[in-house]
């Protein structure tokens, strides 16, 4: 039927253009989300027996699940703090009128565009407690070798993650810094504020929106890290680096327990959404306009 009004015709065109998108997001987002919730209430090898909140109760009481949440929380927090501090420091350096700025920016961004497979395999080779090239170099120099993947495995994969991601936060902060009008710094200079004071009183408050964005993105990506555990440590030694998504992956595809793993996915999703909303809300309160 041909709509009579012009508005009706535009609406018809709009929906015609939207058909593929509506089908796609229904089939590959909303249907799976519905399914993961439905499966989380079921148990058994076929995930077909109703258990109500049984999987959730089991997960919340399961020491292995609680441990993986703790590991993931530490990982995410450290990655957030590290990427803010290091990214901001590098961005402040690159914001100065230095020669070769573009080259530095390009080099520092390369690891971000590199697969976690490359990053993981490369650093596992470098840091291997026995055959790693770092140890062979240290020994050749007469220095003691390192055992970081055994003694501080979580810190080690945090450092490797920062190695990959800091260039990204640096670029975000650089854009934020370039958005701050020169006049503020000039005015503060005339009033006699030193560089330290200008950083804390002007630069940092005006960067708040960027810092918020960086922290939201880093929390979200930190909470769903997987490759670092799968490739570098296999979750170990023991369960020291058993990141949540790695844990869920193992429960789903190695233990083949779709009900239990679905419940854990939903729990982790709730944590991520809650974190995001809290951060965005806190950010709105502290927002500055200029």
């Amino acid at each position: 039927m041909r709509p009579r009004t012009l508005q009706g015709r535009y609406a018809q065109t709009a929906y015609l253009f939207l058909i593929p998108a509506i089908l796609f997001f229904a089939a590959f987002f909303y249907l799976p989300i519905g399914n993961v919730i439905a499966t989380s209430f079921r148990t058994g090898p076929q995930a077909d027996q109703w258990t109500g909140l049984g999987n959730y109760a089991q997960a919340l009481a399961d020491p292995a699940v609680r441990h993986s949440f703790l590991v993931t929380a530490v990982f995410a927090v450290m990655v957030v703090v590290g990427s803010i501090v290091l990214g901001l420091a590098l961005a402040l350096a690159l914001d100065q009128p230095l020669k070769g700025r573009v080259a530095f920016r390009v080099v520092l961004l390369v690891p971000y565009l590199t697969s976690v497979a490359i990053v993981g395999l490369l650093w596992r080779n470098i840091l291997d407690p026995e055959l790693g090239v770092l140890n062979r170099v240290l020994l050749a120099l007469g220095l003691p070798g390192q055992q970081w993947l055994n003694t501080a495995p979580l810190l080690t994969i945090i450092a490797v993650t920062l190695w990959q991601n800091v260039g990204y936060t640096m670029v975000l902060f650089l854009a934020g810094l370039q958005g701050i009008p020169e006049t503020y710094q000039e005015a503060a200079k005339i009033d006699g504020a030193d560089a330290w004071k200008r950083f804390w009183r002007i630069t940092l408050p005006l960067l708040a929106p960027t810092t918020l964005f960086v922290s939201v993105m880093a929390v979200i990506s930190g909470l769903q890290a997987f490759g670092q555990a799968y490739i570098i440590t296999n979750g170990g030694p023991g369960d020291a680096t058993d990141l949540s998504v790695f844990h869920i992956f193992n429960v789903a595809f190695r233990a083949r327990d779709f009900g239990y793993s679905s419940a854990q996915s939903v729990l982790l999703l709730i944590v991520i959404v809650a974190f995001t909303l809290v951060q965005l809300r806190a950010g709105r309160r502290g927002e500055v306009t200029y």
Binding site: F28, F29, L31, P32, I33, N35, V36, T39, I220, L223, Q224, F226, V245, I248, F249, A252, F253, F258, S261, S262, S265, V266, L268, L269, I272, V273, T276
Partner: peptide, 12 residues
């Protein structure tokens, strides 16, 4: 806002 791991099991 939906991370990939949420879709992973149902998509499989």
């Amino acid at each position: 806002m939906v991370p990939f791991f949420v879709r992973m099991i149902p998509l499989y």
